[in-house]
Amino acid sequence: MTRDDRVVDDLLEEAAIDDAADLRSLLLELRSLGAGSPPEPSAELAALMTPAPVDIAAHRRVRNRRLIVAAIAVAASVGVGASAAAASPDFRHTAQTAISFLVHTLVPGALHEPGQPPVPAPGSSRVPGREGTSSGGPQRGASDKSSVSPSPRTSVPARPDPSRRPSTVVPPVTPPGAGSKPTAPPANSHH
């Protein structure tokens, strides 16, 4: 049994039609309409059936285009990476630390960390934050005491105020010609 016979018989069976030899012949005739040779393809169809020739110039154009696209993509990715790193707080902190270190190394004392007091000059007797204490400054009135810190003042003034020297201290008397002898300790006023 051919494929054509099977198609027609299946159709007659689906329609529950028996004893139909004439009808079967008619349907096989209808079926034969699609059994011829392929129609001659048109020029347009024939062009689609022909494998496309390899165009070397087109290949080069495509390759150059790909190189340009790759270069742009690399540049864009580097830019995005740099922006992301600059936006990171860790990166900024590290960069700031490194730059500060370099500046301190090259120009000592040129910069100081933000939020920290300036570093005192070497040899200075003043202690930062201790200006205006009672030991070195003028005597404060009662009204000023409210603004004075209650913490004990333990600092020592760099230059003692001459006006606060005890008046009972007797200046040493150096006898004539005894410049090489050590001076005697001052007598205690209480004794």
Binding site: S32, G34, A35, G36, S37, P38, P39, P41, L45, M49
Partner: peptide
């Protein structure tokens, strides 16, 4: 095209 054009044409 070779396989199906005859039946398309017949249809």
């Amino acid at each position: 095209y070779q396989a199906l054009s005859p039946s398309v044409h017949g249809y």
